[in-house]
Simulated assay, not measured.
Amino acid sequence: MSTVNTTDKTAPAATSETPKKDDIAHRPYEDVLALLLGTMVVSLGVTLYSESILVTGSTAGAALLIEHATGLSFGVIFFVINLPFYWLAFKRMGKAFTIKTFIAVGLVSAFSKLTPMLVEFNTLNPIYAAVAGGALMGIGLLMLFRHRAGLGGVNILALYLQENFNIRAGYFQLAVDMVILVCAFLTLPFDKVLLSILGAVILNLIIALNHRPGRYFTAR
């Protein structure tokens, strides 16, 4: 997948500057592939967490907490909980970003429901689930970010802050995720929360270390 500089002046919706001639925009089919593959990877990570009774941060973490507490479908909860954030996405990040994010959220909701039907775990070590699940979600989010998409909620706010105030998306998300994970102590066993925190650190470090302003040369 191509990389992105989220503070680049050519980024759509974040600025009115005219793109430079040597900027390389993603073609439509590249965006489609990134949305499909990125959301599929995220959904596999979510499945590992769901099977191991772990949580992550952002709206996905809130959806997992509600799933564990109520037994409702993660996909439905995740889709509904993200609805209020589309207004911010449209106002601050632009129409294209909002449409891609809406599609990405819908795909994660669908894939997270289909994946358990296609993959069965006879043995799943919770430590492995925390590390691998966090890594998978981080890699999937990174793919989406570099194609000007997100997974709603805190992702939208994190990208907005990075593009407009140079606040690292990964570090901001990590701070928010810690708050969500502290709330998990009220519903999950202590060891599950600790493993969830480990996964959240891995997820956000992947984003923070690989999605940095000025590191890449391609646009969008």
Rank of each mutant, 00 (worst) to 15 (best):
L124I: 12
V80Q: 00
K100I: 06
I127L: 13
T39E: 01
T115I: 15
V55A: 13
L83Y: 06
P84L: 01
W87C: 09
R92I: 05
G45M: 01
E51G: 03
L54F: 03
S58T: 15
A89M: 06
V105E: 10
G75N: 03
S58C: 09
I77P: 06
L48H: 07
S50D: 10
A104N: 03
F102N: 09
L118V: 12
L107M: 11
G94D: 00
G71N: 15
G71V: 13
F85G: 02
F97E: 07
V46R: 03
V32P: 04
P84T: 00
T70M: 12
T98R: 02
F121E: 12
A129W: 05
A96C: 01
L114M: 15
R92E: 10
P126K: 14
L124R: 10
G61C: 02
M40Q: 09
M137G: 00
L124M: 15
N122L: 09
A110L: 12
F121L: 15
T39V: 05
D31H: 09
V46S: 05
F90H: 12
V46P: 04
N122T: 12
A89P: 00
G71Q: 13
V41P: 00
A96P: 01
L136K: 09
F79K: 00
L118Y: 02
P116D: 02
S58Y: 03
F121V: 02
L124C: 08
A60E: 06
A60I: 04
M137F: 07
L83N: 10
A110G: 07
I77N: 07
L65N: 08
A132T: 12
Y86R: 03
L107D: 08
A96L: 11
Y49Q: 09
L114V: 13
L118Q: 09
G57R: 01
L124Q: 06
A60G: 11
T59W: 03
G45R: 02
N125C: 07
F102G: 10
L72K: 15
F97I: 08
A69C: 15
T47G: 05
A132R: 07
A62E: 11
V32K: 08
I127W: 10
V55W: 03
A34G: 00
L124P: 06
L33Y: 10
L48G: 02
L136T: 10
T123E: 14
G38A: 06
V80R: 04
V105M: 10
A129F: 06
M40V: 04
L65C: 01
M137N: 11
L72F: 15
A110K: 13
F74R: 08
V41T: 11
G61H: 07
N82Q: 01
G94C: 00
L64A: 12
E67V: 09
D31P: 00
V55L: 07
M40C: 11
A34N: 01
K95W: 09
I66T: 10
V46I: 13
A132G: 12
A132F: 05
S109L: 02
L48P: 11
A69H: 13
V119W: 11
N82H: 05
S112H: 12
Y128E: 07
I77E: 04
E120T: 15
V55R: 05
Y128A: 11
N122G: 11
T70S: 15
A135D: 12
L36Q: 01
L136E: 11
V131D: 05
N125K: 09
I81Y: 04
S43Y: 00
D31I: 13
E51A: 14
F111M: 08
